[in-house]
């Protein structure tokens, strides 16, 4: 039998973590409990964050939106601030798992699992999200792309937890597009996904563009060369095809049971064509 802690405030959390330094921390359980069942994670004790009020909810703080780490995907989806300011994240959340998975899983969990297939990660990368980390010794902030160190790896220190995510409102963007290819339309692990955040002038010129791909490398992949090629260009099929070549050079996918590396590379580029208006 293992102890299971349900801290209600930070003091209870730190005390539980002090009592059981090797305890595993989770919120929704949709990743950790599955890994424990598979035997890939062994947890001498468990700390569940679902009742920690400080980690819940969404706040507007000036130019930023704060997302509590233990906020479920479903709560984010129904949150008006998220709906208004972060449509890209909304699109991604709608493809994540299934309704009960979204009722349980949290954004903090999706980040800390650090899977290259994590559905919220490509949008958070293009939104230049920062993570807030806290330990009894203090707090720190880190860009998400620096926090995620590799597949399943983060820079979370021992005794530290992820408390929230900060995203600057993308006020200038006028095109938010996320697309995920899975093996089916729900309960699907990502084969390849793309998040795109663009500002396009009324004349059809790309003023700025941020792109990121899921499941085509050890972490979320970016393609600065493709962004550079498109910035200042018209959104034409030809230009997108040209940029797609850079995308296919930038990604580093692998073969697995779901798809080949070649398919992932091909489609990572092809998804740019979806940005073509009309």
């Amino acid at each position: 039998m293992r102890k299971v802690f349900l801290p209600r405030d930070m003091a209870e959390l730190w005390s539980a973590m002090a009592d059981e330094p090797a305890a595993r921390v989770y919120a929704g359980g949709t990743d950790l409990l599955v890994a424990m069942r598979a035997g890939t994670v062994v947890a001498p004790a468990l700390i569940c964050l679902e009742r920690l009020a400080e980690l819940q909810g969404v706040r507007e703080e000036g130019e930023e939106i704060w997302l509590g780490a233990a906020t479920t995907h479903a709560a984010l989806l129904s949150n008006p601030l998220v709906g208004r300011h972060l449509p890209l994240l909304v699109q991604a959340l709608r493809t994540l798992g299934s309704p009960p998975i979204r009722n349980m899983g949290t954004i903090g969990g999706n980040i800390c699992t650090a899977s290259p297939a994590g559905d919220t990660l490509p949008p958070l990368y293009v939104l230049a999200a920062e993570v807030e980390l806290q330990s009894p010794g203090g707090r720190r902030r880190l860009p998400l792309r620096d926090f995620i160190a590799g597949p399943g790896q983060t820079r979370l220190e021992t005794g530290e937890i992820l408390t929230g995510v900060r995203v600057r409102k993308p006020v200038d963007a006028n095109c938010h597009r996320f697309e995920k290819i899975g093996q089916r339309q729900a309960l699907a692990c990502c084969i390849v996904s793309m998040a795109a955040l663009l500002t396009v002038t009324p004349a059809g010129v790309v003023a700025s563009i941020r792109l990121a791909w899921g499941s085509v490398g050890p972490t979320v992949m970016e393609a600065p060369a493709a962004e550079a090629a498109l910035t200042g260009s018209f959104m034409t099929r030809e230009n997108l095809h040209r940029a797609a070549v850079f995308v296919r050079q930038a990604v580093a996918p692998i073969d697995d049971i779901r798809a080949s590396a070649a398919y992932r590379r091909e489609v990572a580029g092809n998804l740019l064509l979806r940005l073509l208006p009309g």
Partner: peptide, 20 residues
């Protein structure tokens, strides 16, 4: 699937303590 405070959740991925 069960309803937890009216919300559908998966009882295979919930521990007894979380029922409290």
């Amino acid at each position: 699937t069960i309803l937890v405070d009216g919300v559908n959740r998966l009882s295979c991925l919930m521990l007894a303590a979380q029922l409290s």
